[in-house]
């Protein structure tokens, strides 16, 4: 299973349309395979991000707030979208591979952000 997380520094990016960095990870039997890779977008764009998700053949997208049209598009493309996730992407990645990440969840690490982040 291929997972894509929209990220901002160490956290899940609050908004899908303003995301300029994504993390792509491969997962098998609740385990992450190899090292996840980050992809930098040339500019934040929902359309370009959707195109990247399709091109990368992603199965699950983990993101923050996402607009209805893009959500529906990804669902139509049979991609699972777990949106409105708040917290560090490392925790989100663990939770999604463990199968217990749900939309609208605030992960424990969300309240421990250091000042410079």
């Amino acid at each position: 299973m291929k997972i894509l997380l929209t990220i901002k520094k160490k956290y899940i990016s609050p908004r899908f349309d303003l995301t300029s960095e994504v993390l792509v990870a491969l997962c098998e039997d609740h385990q992450i395979l190899g090292n996840p890779r980050t992809i930098l977008m040339t500019r934040p764009s929902s359309e370009e991000l959707c195109a990247l998700i399709i091109k990368e053949r992603v199965n699950t997208v983990v993101c923050g707030g996402i607009e209805e049209s893009h959500l529906q598009y990804l669902v139509w493309k049979k991609i699972q979208v777990i949106d409105s996730v708040v917290g560090p992407y490392s925790e989100a990645l663990k939770a999604v591979t463990g199968g217990f990440l749900t939309p609208g969840i605030i992960l424990p690490g969300a309240k421990q952000r250091s000042k410079e982040e």
Binding site: Y11, I12, P14, R15, L18, G64, V86, G87, I106, R113
Partner: peptide
């Protein structure tokens, strides 16, 4: 109750 203590930009999701 859940939002307390979270940094505002993650809850507000503004531009």
């Amino acid at each position: 109750s859940n939002a307390r203590g979270v940094y505002v930009d993650y809850i507000l999701r503004s531009n």
